[in-house]
Amino acid sequence: MSTLSIQNIAKRFKEIDAVKNITLEIHSGEFFSVLGPSGCGKTTLLRLVAGFEKPSSGRILIDGSDVTDIPPQSRGIGMVFQNYALFPHMTVFENVAFGLEAKKVPKQQIRAAVERILNAVDLHHKMETPVPNLSGGEQQRVAVARALVIEPAVLLFDEPLSNLDVALREKTREEIRQLQRKTGITTMYVTHDQSEAMSLSDRIAVMRSGRFEQVGSPSEIYEAPDSSFVAQFLGGANILNGTLAPSGRLVIGDLHLTMPPRAEGSNLGEVTVAVKPEAITLLPVQQSDHGEAQIEEKQYLGFTTHFVIRANDVTLRVAALSSDFTKRLTIGDSVGFRVEWSGCSMFARE
């Protein structure tokens, strides 16, 4: 059980500040995800922790001891790579045993440890298989086993599921979570997939152009985003720029929405509102709170149905539970809608 402490880390490549002065404590046994769009610096941050990149400034501490100047092989990390980076000329067993051999563990113990971990990832029957003969999912599990078997202080994942198909991705996600809980290894997980981060993590940091936008538990980040970026990235929220009039009306283009009285008077003026797709309910026109809208797109997904509606020049994405009412709606229909203000966040305009 180890802690990872990142203190004022910055990394500058030639002309780009990839990581800008990030400070972070990952608790012992915690599953911590760094979530962000591609190019936000999340992989660089991970590689700084691993030691593959040297920080331009700042320190990295594992269990309180400074590892900033210690090469990767001596840091006590384990890493699962995006492309798995399995040694193609070795069998499953040899891949997993590699790290233990490097540690000069006696052969008997290597054998036992490798068998134990391959049992855990359900690959004991493929021990002698050369890794190129494995399926993508199996290779992924070998990569996890190889990183876990050396009992690292910190386990690092670099988008490990991005090369798997959807069904396998969800299954593997669960397996990773279970293994991490069982072993209690402090974990840092980098991904651009918000559902992955939400389902796996104890805490998430949302990263954007080299900085953390928000750090918190999945529910905190989802329900109370600190910025419209976070709201959009996590909830796929509709981001609307508008003006909050003293009357309590939110004016977005030609669309006037009546806000319920809330103690947010300080937000008067230019605001950005993030409206989650599920916070909009579609209604018959005559019951509408906000007038009439036209349906522009409809996507039936089974349990839910997604719509794109347009109300006075404002386009909104709507996620509705499928019902007899939504089934009847077709493109071009007029429809009424209501906004649940609990599913909205308001920010001063950026």
Partner: peptide
């Protein structure tokens, strides 16, 4: 692939072991 060498490093292998067990055989 350079990531193979990084994988070796993350498994705790030093320069010589990385060369002998990963680079050379490949």
């Amino acid at each position: 692939d350079d990531s193979l060498l990084e994988a070796g490093q993350s498994c705790g292998a030093g320069l010589w072991r990385r060369f002998r067990r990963i680079v050379f055989p490949l």
